[in-house]
Amino acid sequence: MKPKVLLTNDDGVTSAGIWAAYEALSPIADVTVVAPATQQSAVGRSISIFEPIRTYEITMNGVPAYSVGGKPTDAVIIGLYSLNLAPDLVVSGVNIGENLSYESIMTSGTVGAALEASNQGVPSVAFSLQVEDQGDKFDDPSRVTDRFEETKRIVRDVCERVLRDGFPEHADVINVNIPSKVSGGYEVTRLAEKLFHTGVEKRLDPRGRPYYWIDGPLFEDAEEGTDVHAVRMGNISITPITLDCTALRAADRLADIFR
């Protein structure tokens, strides 16, 4: 029997990225798509607890799928506990835009869905594709989808390896970032600290009242061994992520302070 895969994302059920992942995985797995109805980027592990979650069975590209009126975490929970899918693996992505560094994975809905799956006891892999124009994250332009053939090969290869060899001990999520132009191979990495130089742009509306956009350019590079550096060098970054956020190295000092 084929392994079962629950496929989700944060770009929405109509995103070209999730259907590229479906095409990559359907020959090797029994894939069920359960994804947000609309764009949900940067919602992290946000969860809907103050409003009902409506779910509709739809058909996309001739394939039945579930459109969830909520967050990526909601989609995972619906798939696990309402649809009772019992997957062997949860795959989140392919996200349009890289998810690199502490900064990005803490807000990423793509990684958030994978973390939720792992928290519920299902191993998970998150896939993201680097874009050169940050506006592409919301547009799915042809210059991004043209690169999906190579991306599909990587998604299938990574998942085949994980399903064959088992999930690595001490990791809860495998975060995979694919450069816009792959010129190297796989590189196991650690998270960089930052991805963006955070800034705020102030503007005035037609009535002269201020409003703000959070913005800022990307970091050009980071130290060797990090996910940011690997992708900048054209390598496919493979980062093991853990749910345990305990800062163990601070425990002794904290014990001294509160002795």
Results as ranks from 00 to 15, higher is better:
residue 222 A to K: 01
residue 13 V to S: 06
residue 25 L to A: 00
residue 24 A to T: 08
residue 117 A to C: 07
residue 135 G to E: 14
residue 205 D to E: 04
residue 37 A to M: 11
residue 134 Q to F: 14
residue 112 G to D: 09
residue 3 P to A: 09
residue 245 C to A: 15
residue 229 H to W: 12
residue 197 H to M: 10
residue 216 G to V: 08
residue 251 A to W: 07
residue 121 G to P: 01
residue 130 Q to F: 00
residue 193 E to C: 06
residue 111 V to G: 00
residue 123 P to T: 03
residue 1 M to K: 10
residue 54 R to M: 07
residue 28 I to R: 01
residue 55 T to F: 03
residue 65 A to V: 06
residue 105 I to Y: 09
residue 41 S to N: 15
residue 70 G to A: 08
residue 7 L to C: 04
residue 63 V to I: 14
residue 1 M to S: 12
residue 158 V to Y: 01
residue 50 F to V: 11
residue 233 M to I: 00
residue 207 R to P: 00
residue 116 E to G: 05
residue 217 P to Y: 07
residue 138 F to L: 15
residue 124 S to D: 02
residue 132 E to G: 12
residue 10 D to T: 10
residue 14 T to F: 14
residue 256 D to S: 12
residue 226 T to H: 05
residue 8 T to M: 05
residue 182 V to A: 09
residue 142 S to Y: 14
residue 241 I to K: 00
residue 249 R to E: 13
residue 7 L to V: 03
residue 250 A to E: 14
residue 12 G to E: 01
residue 45 R to K: 10
residue 258 F to H: 12
residue 210 P to M: 06
residue 166 G to Q: 07
residue 83 L to V: 07
residue 59 T to W: 07
residue 26 S to W: 02
residue 152 K to W: 02
residue 88 D to M: 04
residue 258 F to A: 12
residue 259 R to M: 03
residue 230 A to Y: 07
residue 2 K to T: 05
residue 70 G to L: 06
residue 182 V to L: 06
residue 225 G to Q: 06
residue 167 F to E: 03
residue 163 L to R: 04
residue 175 N to C: 14
residue 218 L to K: 13
residue 34 V to M: 04
residue 63 V to F: 05
residue 144 V to E: 02
residue 243 L to S: 10
residue 210 P to Y: 12
residue 107 T to M: 12
residue 109 G to E: 04
residue 149 E to G: 11
residue 126 A to W: 05
residue 190 R to W: 06
residue 109 G to W: 04
residue 128 S to P: 09
residue 63 V to T: 15
residue 243 L to G: 14
residue 68 V to Q: 03
residue 126 A to E: 06
residue 111 V to M: 01
residue 252 D to H: 13
residue 148 F to P: 01
residue 255 A to C: 09
residue 64 P to N: 11
residue 52 P to E: 13
residue 228 V to Q: 08
residue 102 Y to G: 00
residue 250 A to T: 15
residue 254 L to Y: 13
residue 16 A to D: 09
residue 105 I to Q: 10
residue 36 P to Y: 10
residue 93 G to L: 06
residue 154 I to S: 05
residue 252 D to C: 05
residue 104 S to V: 02
residue 163 L to K: 04
